[in-house]
């Protein structure tokens, strides 16, 4: 389970990139269809996550993320590796 503080940091980045208020973003939201993020913005998102949490993410992993839950899952796995 991802710590609430980490989730908050992820939501903050999502809000910065999409201009969608935090309370309107749900874990099940799809990055492209629901949050309107094109492929370039999705890459920016994953890059900002890598910087925020100082974790290395491969392109294949980045491109495979489709929804907010996917971000949580990746972050949880990476942070537990540290």
């Amino acid at each position: 389970m991802l710590a609430a503080a980490h989730e908050d940091r992820i939501y903050r980045i999502l809000t910065e990139l999409t201009a969608i208020p935090r309370q309107d973003i749900k874990p099940a939201d799809r990055l492209r269809e629901d949050l309107g993020m094109d492929s370039v913005t999705r890459m920016e998102l994953v890059s900002m996550l890598a910087e925020e949490f100082d974790m290395d993410i491969e392109l294949e992993e980045a491109i495979a993320i489709e929804d907010v839950v996917g971000i949580f899952t990746l972050a949880e796995a990476r942070l537990s590796d540290v």
Partner: peptide, 9 residues
């Protein structure tokens, strides 16, 4: 807001 995944790797 730039993509730095390639730079980090």
């Amino acid at each position: 807001r730039s993509n730095v995944l390639g730079l980090r790797s």
